[in-house]
């Protein structure tokens, strides 16, 4: 139930019992991670030591038509979200 509640952040839960049992199976499987032994001092793998940052140069943006092309609802160049339907 706790898991289903948490996931309600994004998802509405209808088939709670089904999901609980599925989740439980996955979590049981994942428990192996919790009990796994880890070495006290694992050799630190060197983090990539280069930066990949880009220059501050403008590239023309996309047309608003293209930006909106996949939207189901739009109005005057804005994305539109109806409050209820």
């Amino acid at each position: 139930m706790k898991i289903a509640n948490l996931a309600k952040l994004e998802i509405k839960e209808e088939e709670v019992p089904f999901y609980i049992s599925e989740m439980q199976a996955m979590i049981d499987f994942a428990e192996a991670v919790c009990t796994a032994q880890t070495a006290e001092s694992a050799d630190k793998v060197k983090a990539l030591d280069f930066n990949d940052m880009r220059e501050d140069e403008v590239i023309t943006s996309f047309d608003s038509d293209e930006i909106l092309v996949n939207a189901k609802d739009y109005e005057d160049g804005f994305f539109k979200l109806r409050r209820r339907a």
């Binding site: 898991i3 289903a4 948490l6 996931a7 994004e10 998802i11 999901y19 989740m23 996955m26 979590i27």
Partner: peptide, 12 residues
Amino acid sequence: KKRIMLGTFVLS
């Protein structure tokens, strides 16, 4: 949906 929930759970 299952994997999203598991993922949400382990990050919570």
